[in-house]
Amino acid sequence: MVATQAAFSRGNLVMLSLTFFLYFGQLGVLVPYLGVFLDGRGFSSQEIGELFALITLMRIIGPNLFAAFADKSGKSLRILQFGAFLTFATFCSIFWLNSFWGLTVAFGLMMLFFTAIAPQTEVITLGSVRGDATKYSHVRLWGSIGFIVLTVLAGKLIDVFSSEAPIYISGAVLLGLFLVTLGLKEASASERTLTGGESIWKKVRTKVFIGFIVSSTLIQVSFGPYYGFFALYARDLAYTGQETGALIALGVAAEVIIFLLAGKLISRFGVKRTLLVSMLLTALRWHLLAVAAQHWPALVVSQMLHAFSFGLIHAASINFIHHYFGHQFRSQGQALYTSIGFGVGGAAGNFGAGLIWDQGQGAEIAFTIATVFALLGAGMVAFIPSRYMPK
Rank of each mutant, 00 (worst) to 15 (best):
T217V: 12
F223I: 06
D236W: 03
I248C: 04
A234H: 04
I210P: 06
T240W: 06
F229Q: 02
V221G: 07
S215F: 15
L237T: 07
S216I: 09
Y239H: 09
G228E: 05
V214R: 08
G224F: 04
S215E: 13
L232A: 01
S215V: 12
A246W: 08
Y233F: 13
G245L: 00
I248R: 00
Y233M: 11
Q242Y: 11
F230T: 05
F212K: 05
G211W: 08
V221S: 01
I210H: 10
T240C: 07
E243W: 10
V214W: 09
I248S: 03
I213L: 13
T244W: 02
A238Y: 14
V221L: 11
A231H: 07
P225M: 02
S222V: 09
S215A: 14
G228M: 05
L247W: 03
E243D: 13
I213V: 15
R235C: 06
Y226W: 01
I210M: 14
A249F: 06
G224V: 00
F230G: 02
G245H: 04
F230D: 05
S216R: 02
G228K: 01
I210Q: 14
F212R: 01
R235F: 11
V221T: 03
S222K: 05
D236R: 08
F229Y: 11
G211P: 05
Q242E: 15
G211C: 09
Q220S: 15
L237N: 10
R235V: 08
T244G: 13
L247H: 00
A238E: 12
Q242V: 12
S216Y: 07
A238V: 12
L232F: 05
L247F: 09
D236T: 08
S215I: 11
T240Y: 06
G211D: 09
L218I: 11
Y239P: 06
I219H: 02
A249H: 04
Y239F: 14
S216H: 07
G241P: 04
D236H: 11
F212Y: 14
A231Q: 06
Q220V: 10
T240Q: 06
Q242A: 11
A231D: 07
A234I: 01
I219V: 15
G241C: 04
A249G: 14
Q242N: 14
R235H: 11
I210V: 15
V221D: 01
F229I: 00
I248Q: 06
R235G: 13
A246S: 10
A246L: 11
A238D: 15
R235Q: 14
V214H: 08
A246E: 07
G228V: 02
A234S: 12
G224W: 00
I210C: 13
Y226I: 04
A238N: 14
I248P: 02
A238W: 13
A249D: 04
T240G: 09
G245E: 00
A231G: 07
Q242M: 14
Y227T: 02
L232W: 02
T244F: 02
L218R: 07
Y227L: 08
I219L: 15
Y233A: 09
G245Q: 03
Y227M: 08
Y226R: 03
